[in-house]
Write a protein that binds this DNA or RNA. Structure first.
Lengths: 168, 168
DNA sequence: CAAAAATTTCAATAATTATTGAAAGTTTAA
DNA sequence: TTAAACTTTCAATAATTATTGAAATTTTTG
């Protein structure tokens, strides 16, 4: 298989996987391209290699920068910007985790706290059921947060990595 | 706050959270309703309480059953079916994890294995970079799988739960 | 400073995904 | 066996989300 074909397969597949997560296909494709390029690429190079419009590339590259998965780079004597992916898989994972935690877990937490502190009127057993649901969900969210933190630690701790494997 | 209002807040919020995951709003809302109802509900009751069409309720309830988050129940002397949510938060989490693993991790694994076994032609350094990306991603997927397994174990193991908290 | 180069914005449009509802199908009870 | 009760399907439609591309803005260079 030619390298170009391999990359292209990877980019396409990553794109459709991305959309089955909550990530736009373009963003995932651009990310895949930058991951597989050792050096930074310019907007025009990205546009050409993944066949997307300038606006789309601009928007999604900036989104990738928000996620801390990509950074801008300037090259001496070049006017345009180049974009380089973070290549360390553990850091990538960590940043994705943090972003998802922020986007997915925190809003849940807000809702649950609101419902936890409210006084609720109604049929005694039903209220009890509802409150215990809310409380169970809160505990679960905390557990997820713990697990996310653990995940983060794994990066820098080879021993922990082995331990996880051992107890899994 | 009236119980009805609390439930309704929960249902609405869960719905919009759901769609920021990859889950349809209706499915998340129906799930929230069933979670907050101690007893099973019929299709018509669900339709009324979340204001959705019969077809939508039917489809999404069956999807919830696929995810093993809801089960059918028949009541003696009643002709219609009732739907009851799995109420144990840990089992819920486990089933969601398993389903996401199946849907999200396995397709990645397939792609990565394909690229890992192929012989790739091209500029030596670039090929090397690409192959090390693929290999790193494979390792990462394995780690995610380990972590998912760990997650599953936490359910039945209070000691493990404390340990995670301690090392997080 | 002006003009070229590059970037950003955003209204219009396309693509995708979710939802409806009525018709077809199935099950149940008398 | 039939009719009512209930469930399922699916083509049509609505709603949402992603993408385009040209115009506006910003940045850089001479």
């Amino acid at each position: 298989m030619k390298l170009e074909e391999g990359k292209s397969r990877f980019i396409q597949a990553w794109g459709s996987l991305g959309s089955s997560w909550g990530i736009s296909k373009s963003m995932a494709q651009i990310h895949a391209l930058l991951l597989s390029s050792p050096d930074g690429l310019s907007t025009d190079e990205i546009m050409e290699q993944v066949q997307l419009s300038r606006g789309n590339v601009n928007t999604n590259v900036r989104e990738l920068i928000n996620w801390r998965l990509v950074r801008k780079e300037t090259v001496l004597g070049e006017r345009k910007e180049f974009f380089v992916a973070l290549h360390d898989v553990h850091s990538i994972a960590q940043n994705i985790m943090e972003e998802r935690k922020r986007r997915e877990l925190e809003p849940v937490r807000r809702l649950l706290n609101e419902l936890k502190t409210a006084t609720i009127d109604g049929d005694k057993d039903e209220v009890k059921h509802f409150q215990s649901l809310i409380s169970d969900l809160s505990d679960f969210v905390s557990q997820m947060e713990n697990l996310t933190n653990l995940m983060t630690r794994i990066n820098s701790n080879n021993y922990l990595q082995k331990m996880i494997k051992a107890i899994s």
